[in-house]
Amino acid sequence: MLDDRARMEAAKKEKVEQILAEFQLQEEDLKKVMRRMQKEMDRGLRLETHEEASVKMLPTYVRSTPEGSEVGDFLSLDLGGTNFRVMLVKVGEGEEGQWSVKTKHQMYSIPEDAMTGTAEMLFDYISECISDFLDKHQMKHKKLPLGFTFSFPVRHEDIDKGILLNWTKGFKASGAEGNNVVGLLRDAIKRRGDFEMDVVAMVNDTVATMISCYYEDHQCEVGMIVGTGCNACYMEEMQNVELVEGDEGRMCVNTEWGAFGDSGELDEFLLEYDRLVDESSANPGQQLYEKLIGGKYMGELVRLVLLRLVDENLLFHGEASEQLRTRGAFETRFVSQVESDTGDRKQIYNILSTLGLRPSTTDCDIVRRACESVSTRAAHMCSAGLAGVINRMRESRSEDVMRITVGVDGSVYKLHPSFKERFHASVRRLTPSCEITFIESEEGSGRGAALVSAVACKKACMLGQ
């Protein structure tokens, strides 16, 4: 009897593995994704193909990295998701002549009506938060230079001027797309009239992360975010950046690689679950690469896999709870928690219980395998993109072996128990001629924006502006 049951459990697990095998990517698959990513990057950089390229390769006008001589107080704003952060950054000489960066910050959550109302409502709310922060720190009387981390696709015309191309991540505030974001912020500050600010720089969160990590390690020339969304930036040779005049030196390019796949480059790798996630998203047909990796989508992918296993009578005796059938019910943090389970399955059992399920031991094991399959594919897909960037940098610099540091931020990278190990191992397999160091950014977005502002202020002083 026991043997029969054991055989049935083994057969069930084997069927589960057959279904989950769809998520496995072979090294040849990853090399294919990497080569296609490089081709799209090239198209994004070139003037004649930029418009139709899915990977936009947006110039950021960040050319210099901090040298350690900029000092002063800077205000930093960070808008990239449902939370908005205001930070005071003091850049100065530390002990023994070292450079020191001290920060104080406060988080504000953005109400739904500000995210989806008008641009005026959104930026009025942001300036209200700045006003509140300055009151708390008794700094209303000071006109501070301000660095703005704005983590949406922007076409820069200068370091302090950028046109919002399109909202992502659930934002829909009308009247912002096609307009200068810094102008919208300046107008809102003017409307309030109770404080003055000098907006000197606007950067993407990947750029802010790279600059913040450069402060720790001067070989950091790539910034990457794996959180709600997924994106990367890197220092490109100016001669390859056709959208900006000049051939000397390097400029940081914001790849906006989340949109890779929007022209069909990933079609052969998309599964039924991916198509369902895409169809029910706020932007169907867009940001397809990001939807395979980002935390906004990972939990939902797992939920759809679990429903398939229920329908195949391989999980929960073929019956799903009402909660499990509800879109968004299986949160991405559950994926991390399930994979963090120590082996007694308590954590998995508790999560499934909150979803109205009474799982068996085998159910718990199957749910864990589903989570591992989805998150491992995410790590491997992400590795193909980064390997594409790094191999490109090595080739354009004609280096036999390139040493490089990548600064990384984002909740999936930082909080998932195995993502970074799987990701690092896969990147290294795909970049055999590179020695890569990964560092995690601390308060990256805010500190990085302030350091970019410090560079901009120093330049302005040198130019006598």
Rank of each mutant, 00 (worst) to 15 (best):
E70G: 12
R403I: 13
T405V: 08
R7C: 12
I390T: 02
M41A: 01
F423S: 00
E300Q: 02
C371V: 08
N350M: 05
M235R: 01
S174L: 11
R85T: 14
C461I: 02
K459F: 10
D278F: 00
A11Y: 13
V406Q: 01
E95I: 15
S396A: 11
S212K: 01
T65N: 14
S411Y: 10
L288S: 15
D400H: 04
V310H: 13
T255P: 06
A460T: 13
E279T: 09
N166Y: 12
L352N: 03
L306D: 00
S383H: 00
V412H: 02
G410A: 04
M41Y: 10
S453M: 08
A21T: 06
D409W: 05
C461W: 13
K143M: 08
S353G: 12
L2A: 09
I189S: 11
A173R: 10
E319P: 02
F171V: 15
L415Q: 13
H156W: 13
R191G: 04
T206Y: 01
Q337T: 11
K420P: 10
D113F: 13
T361H: 09
A378L: 07
M238A: 02
E268C: 10
E93K: 15
K12S: 14
V91R: 04
S383L: 00
A460S: 08
V335L: 09
V207E: 02
V207W: 03
K102P: 00
S321V: 13
D113H: 15
G261A: 03
L30Y: 03
G162V: 08
T228Y: 11
K169N: 02
G162K: 13
V302I: 15
I225W: 13
R186Q: 15
E245Q: 10
M107Q: 14
W99Q: 08
G97H: 14
T405F: 06
L270N: 03
H105R: 13
G295Y: 12
P111V: 01
G68Q: 13
V241W: 01
P153N: 12
M37W: 04
L309E: 00
L270Y: 08
G162F: 12
D73E: 05
F171S: 11
L58Q: 14
A384T: 11
T103P: 01
L75D: 05
E27D: 15
Q18L: 07
E440M: 15
I436R: 00
V427R: 00
D278M: 01
F195K: 11
E9W: 02
G170M: 15
S340I: 12
R345G: 13
Y349K: 07
T206V: 12
I404M: 09
T437G: 07
S76V: 12
L47V: 13
V253F: 00
N231W: 02
A425S: 07
S360N: 15
D198I: 00
D365Q: 07
V55R: 01
N254A: 08
N179E: 11
C230M: 13
N254L: 08
V91M: 12
K291I: 02
D160I: 10
R303Q: 07
S131G: 13
I19D: 03
T168Y: 15
I211Q: 01
R345Y: 15
G446E: 15
S411V: 11
E268Y: 05
V241H: 10
C252M: 02
I293P: 00
G183V: 10
D73H: 03
E236I: 03
L307T: 12
V408Q: 00
F148V: 14
L184S: 08
E120F: 06
L324F: 11
V244W: 07
G170D: 11
E242S: 08
S445H: 14
N313W: 04
D135R: 10
N180F: 12
A208P: 04
V86N: 08
D262Q: 14
H50E: 11
S441R: 02
S131V: 15
E372M: 15
G80C: 03
F316V: 06
S280D: 15
E51K: 10
L146E: 04
L185I: 11
V244R: 01
K13Q: 08
L134F: 03
C364M: 10
T326F: 09
D29M: 02
M87D: 04
N83C: 08
V86C: 09
R303S: 01
H317V: 09
T228Q: 15
V199I: 06
L463E: 14
Q323G: 13
V302G: 02
A425M: 11
K296S: 11
D205V: 03
L301N: 01
R43L: 15
E28Y: 05
E196C: 07
E120N: 05
G249V: 01
A201T: 00
E272W: 03
G223S: 07
A232F: 07
A11M: 08
Q24G: 13
L20Y: 10
A387H: 00
D42V: 13
F84D: 08
V181W: 15
M41P: 00
H380T: 13
R7A: 10
G264K: 15
E177I: 11
P145I: 06
G229P: 04
E272G: 07
F438P: 00
T354Y: 04
G178S: 10
R325L: 13
L355W: 03
T149F: 06
E242F: 02
G264W: 01
L314Q: 07
M462E: 06
D278A: 02
I366N: 14
H416P: 03
R392D: 05
T431F: 03
Q18P: 07
V335S: 03
R358D: 08
G464H: 07
A460V: 11
A21G: 15
A208H: 08
K32Q: 11
G343A: 14
L314E: 09
M393Y: 03
H380M: 12
S433L: 09
L451T: 06
S453I: 02
G80W: 07
E196R: 10
E40G: 03
E95F: 11
Q138S: 10
L357H: 02
A119H: 05
M393D: 00
V55I: 04
L20E: 02
A6K: 07
S263G: 15
P359D: 00
H156F: 06
L45K: 01
R250A: 05
M8A: 12
T168S: 11
S360C: 12
C434W: 04
R403K: 09
T103I: 05
E248R: 06
C461R: 15
D344Q: 03
V427Y: 00
P432N: 03
N391W: 13
E17D: 04
N180G: 10
C230S: 15
Q24M: 05
A6M: 15
L2M: 05
V241I: 09
D341Q: 01
K143N: 09
V200H: 08
G68A: 09
E236G: 00
P111T: 15
R63H: 08
V452K: 05
